[in-house]
Computed example of a mutant assay.
Amino acid sequence: MRRRFKIRQEIQANIFLNDISLVEPFRRVGAGQPPQNNGDLTRSRRFALLPHVFEKMLISRYACSARDCWSVNKIMAPSSTERDELFKGFARALFKGDMAALYSVVTPDFLWTFHDGLAVTKSLAGAAAIAEHLAEQKALFSAQRFHDVAYHHAGDMTFMTFRVSETVRATGEQREQRGVECYTFRDGRLATKDVYRKPTGP
């Protein structure tokens, strides 16, 4: 059993040294001596180099893993199916004015920027600001209906195109606008919402 284990160690040592030799094919073995190929090293010298081999392999492996993980977390966005579920929950929460439900599908620092298509621009950060905006919209309009809603998933963003019909409560004025909403994601949730609207043409 010990002999098998020792043979396996020797095989692994040779594999490790061969891996390192691809990166660093020549190594000085003593001051004043010429470079020597790892393939020419004696078996005892190979084992003497193992600590250095392990160190280089671990540094290389974990450096790559950390970089890869950072890249994946940075660029990976929810799938189309996952986004559809997020938007269903988001729409239900907004319709009910349920901030707890809303913040189950958005990030804690979710930012909603809004332009009403006329003159008002807002940046809504936090549950209180969003709840206040929804209350203002409800007080301003006696009716507000969205039509032709379509989601377009593109890379790490999603765009929602729509048409909206609104009736101003105080005057009865009818408004028709078209718009687009741009969404970004982080950690499997909605991170930002940017709304752009403009009046429809005659």
Rank of each mutant, 00 (worst) to 15 (best):
66 A>T: 13
82 E>N: 04
91 A>W: 05
97 G>D: 05
84 D>Q: 06
78 P>Y: 01
88 K>G: 08
78 P>A: 06
91 A>C: 08
87 F>P: 03
70 W>F: 14
82 E>V: 02
84 D>H: 05
69 C>S: 14
103 Y>W: 02
95 F>I: 12
75 I>T: 14
81 T>K: 07
93 A>M: 02
76 M>G: 08
61 R>P: 10
75 I>A: 14
69 C>V: 15
75 I>K: 11
103 Y>R: 00
74 K>M: 13
98 D>A: 01
100 A>R: 09
80 S>P: 05
97 G>S: 04
92 R>K: 13
66 A>K: 10
105 V>K: 01
92 R>I: 09
92 R>E: 11
68 D>L: 14
73 N>F: 08
78 P>L: 04
88 K>T: 10
72 V>G: 09
92 R>S: 08
69 C>R: 15
62 Y>W: 08
74 K>Y: 15
90 F>P: 01
57 M>A: 12
61 R>E: 11
101 A>E: 06
71 S>M: 10
81 T>Q: 10
82 E>H: 02
77 A>V: 03
96 K>I: 11
62 Y>Q: 09
101 A>T: 06
104 S>M: 05
79 S>L: 06
73 N>Y: 13
93 A>P: 00
70 W>T: 15
101 A>G: 08
64 C>Y: 15
77 A>K: 00
76 M>N: 08
67 R>L: 15
99 M>V: 00
61 R>K: 12
96 K>H: 08
67 R>M: 15
75 I>G: 12
88 K>V: 10
70 W>G: 12
70 W>M: 14
67 R>V: 15
89 G>W: 01
60 S>A: 13
98 D>Y: 01
66 A>C: 14
62 Y>T: 06
94 L>F: 07
70 W>L: 14
66 A>Y: 12
102 L>C: 01
103 Y>I: 00
81 T>F: 08
99 M>D: 01
81 T>Y: 03
96 K>A: 12
57 M>H: 08
66 A>W: 10
61 R>Q: 13
69 C>T: 15
64 C>A: 12
103 Y>G: 00
79 S>D: 02
96 K>M: 10
101 A>S: 11
72 V>F: 07
99 M>L: 06
102 L>S: 00
91 A>V: 09
